[in-house]
Amino acid sequence: IRCIGVSNRDFVEGMSGGTWVDVVLEHGGCVTVMAQDKPTVDIELVTTTVSNMAEVRSYCYEASISDMASDSRCPTQGEAYLDKQSDTQYVCKRTLVDRGWGNGCGLFGKGSLVTCAKFTCSKKMTGKSIQPENLEYRIMLSVHGSQHSGMIVNDTGYETDENRAKVEVTPNSPRAEATLGGFGSLGLDCEPRTGLDFSDLYYLTMNNKHWLVHKEWFHDIPLPWHAGADTGTPHWNNKEALVEFKDAHAKRQTVVVLGSQEGAVHTALAGALEAEMDGAKGKLFSGHLKCRLKMDKLRLKGVSYSLCTAAFTFTKVPAETLHGTVTVEVQYAGTDGPCKIPVQMAVDMQTLTPVGRLITANPVITESTENSKMMLELDPPFGDSYIVIGVGDKKITHHWHRSGSTIGKAFEATVRGAKRMAVLGDTAWDFGSVGGVFNSLGKGIHQIFGAAFKSLFGGMSWFSQILIGTLLVWLGLNTKNGSISLTCLALGGVMIFLSTAVSA
């Protein structure tokens, strides 16, 4: 259960009878995928790494000078000259100064003066180019299975845990398959586009800190620079940016070097996208990844198990997540596992009318040892309800109150669905055939309105939902006002479609 501690969480529900669903994975976010007769899966884009970055340009932001020398000439005696002028490691300046009897010249006039100092770069920052084909995306998957609280967001041991898996995709191999043991396998067909235009970005490294910066900004930095990788004795261009020549006297000129420019660069980098280094690879934390999940090989585990009949206890007080759902960790005293956990939410304890829904599909106890633990997640209705676990006299209950409203949740879900469709863009549509167009249209309606429909009408039977949709269509056909007619027709059509397409 990876997503319960992530604030940016998206719930995606598969269409009834569908074998695939489109998701948008982004750094700092987590996606929970639910479908009829399929286990619930949490998917998170953990890291995006980039390798084989080529150094484009380096800037010196802290330097020192040494070996200063000057040469001067009297008027009419030609130009002052130093051998160091031809050495690229030196920074030199030529000027004219007033000369006369007082400073060793027989004539009054302008004399030539040249001053040089050896330039040494102490600290530099480097910009590297990123090729999209060198990106690698690491995705962690977790099935809502027989897990306890100690396994949440624990990325170790996934090789031997059938509840978890790690997959890596690249532009050259965008397809992967996550093996989930008894739950089958989940196929991923990803489109490795981060949403960032790397043709316009460089990877900047300064003092063990890293950013993504725009090329134009990078090339306009007014500091000494050299092109390409460091060859040991780089040729620094624009050395004068960190060196200041003071007022010249008759035979000498003082040279000083400016202080470190790291603070000024940090100020200019305010708002830039931060990154990290992992050995020789860069780690990015921006952008998104679009994936199509193929769920035809994914299956529920323990459908044929019998119900657990022994007593359950709450190991922890049920807690609310950031998303309005409830996490419950229970301990089973029996030894008759594997068995299914009898769990439901009810409005009252007399009729036990089921409300809400299970995020953890078909929760089971897989071990036959005593005191096995299991964590599950529920989506309670707004208002008061009861969490009921167990059967008969051994069942345990917990009162729950959820604040908020169904309308607010439906609106929030619609906005999130619209954002998801905007990110998917043209990849969500198939114009290759008439059937493809209608299929894409259905998927689009489901992406945007599916979660809201589930919130508003999830407790009704599909037949009642179709009746309401048919009534809206009838009202649309018999209303003389054009805008009201079109609105009723659209709402009725969407409702009829979703009542037959969205899983219960």
Rank of each mutant, 00 (worst) to 15 (best):
Y386C: 14
C339H: 07
L378W: 09
V364K: 00
Y158P: 05
N103G: 02
N362G: 06
L475E: 07
P354Q: 14
G324R: 10
T231C: 00
A428K: 09
R57I: 08
L25W: 11
M277V: 09
H144V: 07
W474V: 09
S485N: 05
V97C: 08
V97D: 05
K294A: 05
G279W: 03
D379N: 12
I365S: 03
L223S: 14
E240Y: 14
F108N: 06
Q85A: 04
M206N: 05
I387N: 13
T487M: 12
D278M: 02
G482N: 13
I139W: 09
Q89S: 08
L456K: 09
D42F: 08
T487H: 09
H27S: 12
T315H: 01
W20N: 06
F108Y: 10
A272C: 12
R9F: 07
E133R: 01
L135V: 05
I407P: 06
N478E: 04
P192Q: 02
G263I: 09
D197F: 08
C3H: 05
G492F: 02
I468G: 14
T335Q: 13
G482D: 13
G334D: 06
V437H: 07
M34R: 05
D230M: 09
N481K: 13
T327Y: 03
V33Q: 04
Y332C: 10
Q253K: 02
E274D: 14
E133F: 09
G390N: 07
H210V: 14
A490E: 13
N163D: 15
V31E: 02
C339S: 04
G195I: 10
K297V: 01
M345V: 15
D200R: 00
G29P: 00
G417R: 02
G187T: 11
Q77E: 14
L96E: 08
H148N: 11
R292S: 02
N134G: 04
L378C: 04
L467C: 03
W400G: 10
D200W: 05
I365H: 08
H27V: 15
G106Y: 02
W20S: 03
G232W: 00
T406Y: 03
W101R: 09
I152K: 01
W217H: 08
D247S: 06
T353V: 12
V256Y: 00
A272V: 10
M495N: 04
E62Q: 09
G492E: 01
P318I: 06
G282T: 01
T500C: 12
C121V: 04
G469S: 15
L258R: 09
V423H: 06
I221R: 00
D247N: 05
I407E: 05
A504I: 12
D336T: 13
D42H: 04
T160R: 03
A361V: 09
C74E: 09
T179L: 04
G232H: 05
T179R: 13
D430R: 02
V364C: 15
V97S: 06
S7M: 13
G476C: 02
D22E: 13
L25H: 06
A69K: 02
M53G: 00
H399Q: 15
L223C: 11
T369E: 00
P75I: 05
M421D: 10
T353C: 00
P234R: 09
F108G: 03
C3A: 02
E191F: 08
V143H: 08
V41R: 00
G104A: 10
I365V: 15
A418R: 01
K215G: 01
N103L: 01
I152N: 15
L376K: 07
D10C: 04
G17N: 04
S483H: 14
T335D: 13
T313Q: 13
A117T: 11
V50S: 00
L201Y: 14
A264I: 09
F411E: 09
G102M: 09
R175C: 09
S72W: 06
V415F: 14
K209Y: 06
C190E: 08
F108L: 10
V494W: 12
K340M: 11
D42K: 07
L486K: 06
G282L: 07
A250T: 11
I65T: 09
E159I: 02
E276H: 09
G127T: 01
Q261F: 12
I152R: 06
E55H: 06
K166D: 12
G109I: 06
N362E: 03
